[in-house]
């Protein structure tokens, strides 16, 4: 039934999703502009990697490129590779990509309100995905749809199959989308801001659900988010992205206990949870530079209080490292003192 899985079993490679030195450009009126530069990440099955950053730092297009989405929008790879179990996805044919997308790697999008087609029933949309990837009869596909919907905690799944998206709340739609993502038993899942559009109590339940599915099925998950709370809930490892490249990488404990890059520290400090009423919140002055308008040296330098003349030189990824924890900063010694970033 799943020939690629058999092929995989005979291969000797460790199953792994690897992004190597990936650089991407986005189109603009004045020609392509670099949006992501030299991103290297790897995702093992059974682990959750949080990719954190503000809007415009390139985290979403990095995630989309794993499935080669966004090419029709003119997002181009200028360098690097994405390898799934050693196979370069940029050499894949369209037919192989169809197996890859939703079969081996699934995606959960941010907007549960727009990701479902309003004119097809929930049943039609789930069985479409199931039958695309698995060789099942209609009846068997319906049975599988029912069990998937049960897995994601939806009650009365048989009735739900006949309903249309407009009769579902945001939380229920997100569960349906998660069920669809699980339809073909993928090995990896890319969750792009999976709870951003949801209420806080619904978010808590979706977090529980993602954690349960990820553990039970041993999924590798790439969690793209701007929210350190979500990272604290779900991630094993964390990559912090700023202006198109990774500025810090480490285990979730390392990142929360010893945030090292000034950007990571500043971002954590300006979470409203971290501040107290009456005192000004530590904000980061200025804003993320636009794609292509990055400073030549350290890209965070214009907003960093520790920046000096030495920061005008490009900084290597592992300028500071300690075990598996590294930061792209030459002034770590200075910045690990308490930061007082204000506007």
């Amino acid at each position: 039934m799943k020939c690629w899985k058999a092929a995989l079993a005979s291969a000797t490679l460790t199953p792994m999703l690897e992004i190597e030195h990936l650089s991407l450009s986005i189109p603009s009126a004045s020609g392509p502009k670099p949006a992501v530069s030299d991103v290297t990440l790897s995702l093992e099955s059974g682990r959750v990697l949080g990719l954190v950053g503000e809007s415009g730092c390139g985290k979403s297009i990095t995630a989309q490129t794993i499935l080669r989405l966004g090419e029709h929008q003119g997002i181009e790879r200028t360098e690097g590779t994405v390898k799934l179990d050693g196979q370069d996805i940029f050499t894949m044919q369209e037919s192989e990509l169809r197996v890859l997308r939703g079969g081996r790697i699934s995606m959960i999008f941010q907007e549960p309100m727009t990701a479902l087609n309003p004119v097809f029933s929930i049943g039609a949309q789930i069985t479409e995905v199931i039958r695309l990837h698995l060789d099942l009869t209609k009846r068997k596909a319906c049975e599988r749809a029912v069990s998937l919907l049960t897995d994601v905690g939806l009650q009365q799944p048989e009735q739900l199959l006949r309903q249309y998206p407009d009769s579902l709340s945001g939380g229920m739609r997100q569960r349906v989308l998660i069920a669809m993502a699980m339809a073909a038993d993928p090995d990896y899942i890319i969750a792009d801001e999976p709870t951003t559009a949801l209420d806080v109590s619904v978010q808590a339940r979706i977090i529980d659900l993602l954690r349960k599915l990820q553990r039970e099925k041993g999924l590798g998950m790439l969690l793209v988010t701007h929210d350190f709370g979500l990272v604290a809930e779900l991630a094993d490892d964390v990559a912090v992205m700023y202006a198109g490249h990774i500025v810090e990488y480490g285990s979730v404990e390392a990142i929360f206990d010893h945030p090292t890059h000034p950007y990571t520290r500043a971002l954590m400090d300006c979470r409203p949870e971290a501040a107290s009423r009456g005192t000004p919140m530590p904000a980061i002055p200025g804003q993320v530079p636009a794609p292509g308008a990055w400073p030549a040296g350290c890209r965070f330098a214009p907003r960093c209080r520790w920046a000096d003349a030495a920061c005008e030189q490009p900084v290597e990824a592992e300028a500071w490292h300690h075990g598996g924890h590294w930061a792209r900063c030459i002034h770590v010694a200075k910045s690990t003192k308490p930061l007082e970033l204000t506007e």
Partner: peptide
């Protein structure tokens, strides 16, 4: 329902079935 502030505070997963979400 707010997310935890530190990974060490993660709670045990609760019953995930939607009883009456909304």
């Amino acid at each position: 329902a707010r997310p935890v502030e530190h990974p060490a505070q993660r709670k045990k997963p609760t019953d995930i079935a939607v009883r009456s979400e909304e």
